[in-house]
Amino acid sequence: MNPSVITDNLIYFLVGPWPQGPLGGAALTVILTVLSAALSGVLGLVFGVLLSVLRGPWLAVLRLGLGLFRAIPVLMLIFWIYFLAPIAFGLDVPGVGSVVAALSLIGGAYLAHTVHAGIEALPRGQWAAASALGLSRRQTLWLVVAPQVLPRMAPSVVNQWIALTKDTSLAYVIGVAELSFVATQVSNRVMVYPAEIYLFVAVLYFILCAGFELAAGRLARRYRSLPA
């Protein structure tokens, strides 16, 4: 083991060429994760509620769409957005944008089912009781259903962030200079000790993901001990 390859390049691993160049490395990984988490949260909430309230053909269309996003590899979706958006819409989507868009769509498709399952898990009597009191469907959703369902979803949402964090590494394939990409850069430049480099990078990812895992476990215990 040779630690000098790590210590010599530590700053580069963490922030890339910044401040001389654009921000990269672990910092960019965190930014990609946060952006995708926020966007996928919004998409998941909207699509999850729609899964619960839509009926008929629109529901079928939504199910099919979400199913497709869960069936294709993240890598394929990144390629679609990165290579085809410029051709199809004349939009030149930057690498970072492509990755965030792809991760948000796929993350949103998974979250939609979590939201939907959470809503369905609520006893039907709660809807009936709210409705018997004269609350409208919309009021019921926001005043009665959401406050009960959202906290219970917290552990799955945080678990979703683990998947997102790991998936940001795929930005490598279109040359976005996040942590995995700068790792290969360093590895190609120094030409020695690739094992040390990838182990160290794995540890950085592990710190992020294990932190989320710990938080998810805490949240799960907290909401399990909470009176139902």
Binding site: S169, S187, Y193, P194, A195, V201, A202, Y205, C209, A210
Partner: peptide, 23 residues
């Protein structure tokens, strides 16, 4: 289990492909 679940597959593949061949 925690180590393998909480690191990206891509980095694990790089480790096995580039890292192990050096070791």
């Amino acid at each position: 289990l925690s180590a393998f679940r909480n690191t990206p597959l891509l980095v694990q593949l790089f480790f096995w492909y580039f890292g192990v061949s050096a070791l």
